[in-house]
């Protein structure tokens, strides 16, 4: 049910040319994905998807629309046959690949045989907090989370450098000095 709603939303996103509506549909898509994660018992992931995907990312995309335009350019005449073929072949290969994937929730799956049992059984003694997701993220996989935090940090640096950093604002507030204008030139 949720999956079919996801497909309908995705198709609507492809068909629509009004980018404002597309951004709203993306928010709905994220909310549906979050519900899907709740159904799969991944509440932490659902939480992130709902707050980032449906919340903040929508606002950022609206901000981008305000800076650019809210109408998608209509594409010129092109032949859709080759792209359609590529997409169909890739999709067929992916669907064929799913037949080899182990069943969802089967305790004999390889992913449940590696480190997961140790996390689930020993984290109460070793870390002592009830939320295993938190203990995996922050303690067992602390290096990864440090890396992720650094990625977020780097993303902010990149965005601030690209659009509207401190330099731009300072220049518009202060009266331009002659020597600075020479520097810019």
């Amino acid at each position: 049910m949720l999956l079919s709603l996801l497909v309908v939303t995705a198709l609507a996103v492809i068909r629509l040319r009004d980018l404002f509506a597309v951004v709203m549909l993306f928010g709905i898509y994220s909310l549906l994905s979050a519900s899907l994660f709740v159904v799969l018992d991944a509440v932490d992931v659902a939480f992130t998807e709902a707050s980032v995907g449906a919340g903040v990312a929508t606002v950022f995309m609206l901000g981008t629309l305000a800076l650019t335009t809210s109408r998608e350019k209509t594409p010129g005449a092109h032949k859709p046959l080759l792209p359609l073929l590529v997409v169909l072949v890739t999709g067929a290969a992916l669907i064929y690949g799913t037949s080899d994937i182990p069943h969802y929730g089967d305790p004999g799956n390889p992913i449940h045989q590696h480190v997961a049992p140790r996390y689930l059984e020993d984290s109460a003694e070793e870390i002592g907090i009830p939320n295993v997701v938190s203990s995996v993220l922050a303690s067992y996989r602390g290096y990864d989370t440090l890396g992720e935090t650094t990625v977020v940090f780097t993303a902010a640096i990149g965005v601030l450098l690209l659009i509207g950093g401190a330099r731009r604002r300072r220049r518009s507030e202060e009266p331009p000095r002659p020597d600075r204008e020479e520097e810019d030139a």
Partner: peptide, 29 residues
């Protein structure tokens, strides 16, 4: 472990909140 996780999560929270608000300021400004 308790203390470490608390502090580490606090660090993540501060960075993420500041990053999101700065990006929003950059877009809106």
């Amino acid at each position: 472990q308790h203390l470490g996780i608390l502090l580490v999560e606090l660090g993540v929270g501060i960075t993420v909140a500041s990053v999101m608000i700065s990006i929003f300021y950059a877009f809106a400004g």
